[in-house]
């Protein structure tokens, strides 16, 4: 199956363009980029699995998707975090003027 070689190449192309996004303006973009990159990797793994004819990779894919989902959730939590810190800063001012 020489076909899958070209498939591998396509996967390569996509990975490249995603990286460019990593330099994008806002953090959320970067988070998104990293998530998509993760999924690209999953695609890559599937193709490799096909190429090497082993069925062991399938479990790996499932774990990969689970992990990338957890990654996105964590990233979202982090992005929302500064919001919390503002809160803290505000409350500090309140405390100071009270003291």
């Amino acid at each position: 199956f020489t076909i899958d070689i070209c498939i591998v190449m396509i996967a390569v192309g996509m990975l490249m363009c995603v990286i460019r996004l990593l330099k994008s303006p806002h953090l959320a973009d970067r988070a998104l980029a990293s998530d998509t990159l993760g999924v690209e990797l999953i695609g890559m793994v599937i193709l490799l699995g096909m190429r090497f004819m082993t069925s062991a990779f399938i479990d790996g894919v499932l774990i990969l998707s689970l992990l990338s989902f957890a990654g996105t959730v964590a990233m979202a939590q982090y992005i929302a975090r500064p919001h919390l810190r503002h809160k803290q800063v505000k409350s500090n001012e309140k405390l100071e003027d009270l003291a």
């Binding site: 062991a56 479990d59 790996g60 774990i63 689970l66 992990l67 989902f69 957890a70 959730v73 964590a74």
Partner: peptide, 17 residues
């Protein structure tokens, strides 16, 4: 391929989520 270590990690990621 699998094993205690990986399973542990997967489970902990799930718990974290």
């Amino acid at each position: 391929p699998g094993g205690g270590f990986v399973a542990g990690l997967v489970a902990s990621v799930a718990l974290i989520v």
